[in-house]
């Protein structure tokens, strides 16, 4: 039987892994290369890396971060190193604007890419990308925030740009345009550890027939069980939860098994 996937998401900012809160605050917590052996040991189902560096980047390096950074490396270098040692599906997202951006990532070992900003600016790009690389390669990430009217709205560029799009309508549209999966993230819940946004996730899962990866808000392992039971996403993802405790991934899987979920152990 098809397993529910549990996916760590790694946010990269200027070559380092950072922790995010509400898409606003980023704290450096690790080096993407030195953390690799850990993911291998955990036998993770899949890994998603999102590069959130911006052109007008500010230096977020804090003196108390105590991170030993190796030499400066580009995202493409990171993809190459990761794909040589992690034999699970690897998704890379962030700053993808052109087919060549996808090509360069795939050539270095990415299996999938996530599109966000570019998909919103030019929805036809989803179709173009799916035609060249196959639907399975194109994950559209949808970041959702409750707007001032209390309605769900798709935001992009971190949380800076309101798009006017309704998440359910947009999800149906990206599926129609050729997306292979949807990575659905609640900005409100990001980094809050308050649990997943069940209403949001259920509405998108129900409206679409492609796999939906639920993200945003996982604070305790039980949250994964609850969201799968309540909203039936194909996969659950989290970032912060996996950073601070060494055995967190395994503990999360155990909790999911205990909760009766069909996961890969």
């Amino acid at each position: 039987m098809l397993k529910i996937r549990l996916i760590p998401i790694l946010l990269l900012k200027n070559g380092l892994i950072v922790r995010s809160e509400s898409f606003k605050f980023h704290q450096i917590i690790g080096d993407p290369i030195t953390q690799l052996s850990r993911y291998n040991r955990w036998s993770v189902d899949e890994l998603i890396y999102i590069d959130i560096s911006s052109d007008d980047h500010y230096d977020v390096r804090r003196e108390d971060a105590k991170i030993e950074t190796s030499e400066k490396r580009s995202l493409l270098d990171i993809i190459e190193v990761v794909s040589k040692s992690c034999f699970v599906p690897l998704t890379f997202g962030g700053r993808i604007r052109t087919l060549n951006d996808i090509r360069s990532r795939v050539a270095r070992g990415a299996d999938k890419v996530t599109l966000n900003y570019q998909a919103i600016m030019d929805p036809g790009f989803i179709t173009q990308a799916a035609k060249v690389f196959g639907n399975q390669c194109i994950v559209v990430s949808i970041d959702v925030l409750k707007n001032v009217h209390g309605q769900y709205e798709v935001f992009t560029s971190g949380r800076q740009k309101a798009t006017g799009l309704d998440p359910v309508q947009w999800a149906k549209e990206v599926a129609r345009l050729g997306a292979g999966e949807i990575l659905l993230n609640s900005i409100d819940r990001d980094g809050t550890a308050a649990g997943f946004d069940s209403d949001l996730i259920r509405s998108v899962v129900t409206a679409t027939s492609i796999p939906v990866i639920a993200c945003g808000g996982a604070g305790k392992f039980k949250d994964f069980v609850t969201i799968v039971q309540e909203a039936k996403p194909s996969a659950v993802a989290a970032a912060n939860l996996f950073h601070f405790t060494e055995l967190s991934y395994r503990h999360a899987k155990k909790e999911m098994l205990k909760g009766g979920l069909n996961v890969r152990s």
Binding site: L2, K3, D45, S209, P211
Partner: peptide, 10 residues
């Protein structure tokens, strides 16, 4: 049944 079949299976 979501198509494509994506993920880990026995």
């Amino acid at each position: 049944l979501r198509i494509p079949h994506v993920g880990w299976n026995n």
